[in-house]
Amino acid sequence: MRKSMLAILIALGIAGLVVPGGVFAKDPRLSPKRLSSTGDSITEAINAEEFNPFIFITPNHWASWANGYYGFWEWLFGRTNVKSHNQRISSNFGSSGRKNFMQALSGADSFDLPGQTAQSVSNAATYVTHFMGHNDVCQGSFADIPSDAQFEANVRAGLNNMKNGLPNGATVYVQAIVDIYKLWQLGDQLTSFGIIDCRVIWAASLFNIFPCATMLSPLNSEADRQYTRSRNVAFNTILQNLVNEFNANDTHHYYQYTTVTFDTTFTADQVSPFDCFHPSAKGQKDLSAYTWADGPFKAYTK
């Protein structure tokens, strides 16, 4: 019986449908050929490389760390090849049977996660990236930041959707919320050094034209920003605990969490030159590299 199971797994592995090295207590891990990303403006690569000043929020999907792509038009217009997870999957596992679904949406927060993960389920995704929570921390007012209980309930609902609906053997990879405070520090430095007046751009957060007044508003005190950072840290702890819990209890799926996104200190060339906040194309490229290197498929290095 065991021998026949092993033979099946080897056959699937050769066919590129199963990733070798899986834990036998769980279903064999599926190849990540069907990628579905959940998330917000970071995964949509807002203002990463192109910017329309008339609409202020410009999706740059080719530059997404998760779903980005690089083809003829990107080459022609000299856009950045971000080597996204999508591209890495094709390089490592082949393009046959590939699907690339972006469910991330600018402005989405944990309340949108059940809806986005339902889409990932309907995509029959074998690999779901989850980079969400920035808009929970980044609110128009401090009263709008959800409580720990609410945030946990939202994320749990999203993970439950995937637990109940993703194909057995699928992988869910959860990234920690970026350290928003470090982004504020960076923008403050860029302003001080005369590179770009981030403070003026961020003043739009006062009128909800730009997000994240809870960190970026010029009216905030240092204590206010530290409070927001403490919520940032608390939400990451919840994400980590939930990932551990689901990975321990769900024998059909794989869950992994990384703090690399929180630990990264962004530099000037990694943030958008248009809004001093979202990752630039270079930042997206680095995010892809860092998260892949710390992720479930890091053994695949192409």
Partner: peptide
């Protein structure tokens, strides 16, 4: 939430 925010920012101010 506001009560929590105000309490925590007081702590932050004291810590800073």
């Amino acid at each position: 939430r506001i009560r929590y925010f105000l309490s925590e920012t007081r702590r932050e101010e004291r810590r800073l």
